[in-house]
Design a protein around this nucleic acid. Structure first.
Lengths: 227, 227
DNA sequence: CTCAAAATTCAACAAATTTTAAGCATGCTT
DNA sequence: AAGCATGCTTAAAATTTGTTGAATTTTGAG
């Protein structure tokens, strides 16, 4: 059985009975669950709660699931699973479920939902389960800690995010634009120079004076080389 | 979590919400994205942008997806993925006959679109992914690295681009004009002498003193000979 | 509200890359 | 072999890109 402590799910549906049923079921599986019955509420909760997965009914009074999904995506790094009723599929909703990472047609079994949540988490948050070991590094996502050769690095939140991203993508050249959009968010307004500044800070803390750990590929970006 | 920097996607749909959603999602995955809401616009953008993949809605006011697809194929080397609503599935045959590489039925998940884009790129632009082996050379686009007999070449960005171009077209005679336009871009203002300068630099780094790897064909251009 | 840590911006500096240009070498034609 | 065209080599100028330390702004805890 998979360890799911610390994985957060936000359920959004205007039907209280469904909501309660899913909430109980998921809590029973070890998830942390919050619920909302309305789009705007969902977005506000998400800003505090930072769920890993949002399960979202498409048809809701007021703001519909599509709109909620779009707004969530702007600020949260989250997987979205949409729910649609069968007769809505043929309707105007057709094509609108497109923005979600996955969608399910009602009615569905609880097992099916569980399976899809697992799939999404595995896909989007691979490092959420326990420690990820990458060469001389160990990323502990739960503790927000990275060790380098058994030495805990004292990192600010942004430094942590950046180093985690670099490590999880070691071996690939990552352009400053990609790093910006992945670590700072696609809507970050500032200059790419900030990436350079943080890279420097990481190199400092890693004693990477020769730039051998974090290599600069002039004109292309940076690449972490695990030896 | 895969980085796909450098892969360009053109989205064509007359529904702004869908367009925006796919754009955000794909950008978030590291793609370069452009969008068009109308067939003629799409074709004009494609001429400048040279996308690797075009995602094309069949049903559009004015020029329909089939027409756009046919015109694109005339001038661009591009993979086309068509989108059709469920009740338009008969169009599928038409789409594939006319030259689409793949098609998807709405509604679809974002994941599914990603998977298909990956599949198409893998198929049509293999050098954008893993390693391409050409004789004693290995091009790794994602690492921005070229190995020669297991030795990593230290190349500047332009040297890399040039060598990649030469290798991918080995056996062909490439005139300086063609090299200039392909490696430096059609709007480069300088002299062809710069090609000579860079060829020399490559020959240096390849220990190609005898010009056996990169052969000069006086009056015609250069040719890479893979033994 | 205050303060310190963190995040961001800025600008001077450093380094690598690209481009240019001039002289040299080589091969081709007559 | 002379003369010409084409390609080669080289080094220095111009440009681009990355680095760095410090200044400034923002954020969040107490």
């Amino acid at each position: 059985m998979q360890q799911l402590k610390g994985i957060k799910v936000l359920l959004v549906d205007d039907e209280p009975s469904i909501l309660q049923f899913l909430e109980l079921g998921l809590q029973n599986e070890g998830f942390e669950v919050q619920t909302a019955m309305e789009g705007m509420t969902a977005i506000n909760i998400a800003k505090e709660f930072h769920p890993h997965v949002v399960v979202l009914d498409v048809m809701m009074p007021g703001m519909d699931g599509f709109e909620v999904c779009r707004m969530l995506r702007k600020t949260e790094n989250v997987a979205v699973i949409m729910l649609t009723a069968r007769d809505e599929v043929e309707d105007r909703v057709k094509g609108l479920t497109i923005g979600a990472d996955d969608y399910m047609v009602k009615p569905f079994s609880f097992e099916e939902l569980l399976a899809r949540i697992h799939a999404r988490i595995r896909n989007q948050f691979p490092n959420l389960f326990g420690e990820v070991v990458i060469g001389p590094f160990r990323i502990d996502n739960r503790r927000k800690e990275i060790k380098h050769e058994d030495r805990v690095l004292e990192l600010s939140p942004t430094e942590y995010n950046l180093l985690e991203f670099l490590l999880l993508n070691h071996g690939l050249v990552l352009s400053k634009a990609v790093i910006l959009s992945k670590v700072w968010g696609y809507d970050f307004g500032g200059e790419e120079n900030i990436v350079e500044v943080y890279i420097r800070s990481l190199r400092d803390k890693l004693n990477d004076k020769e730039h051998r750990l974090i290599r600069t590929l002039r004109g292309s970006g940076y690449r972490v080389d695990i030896i």
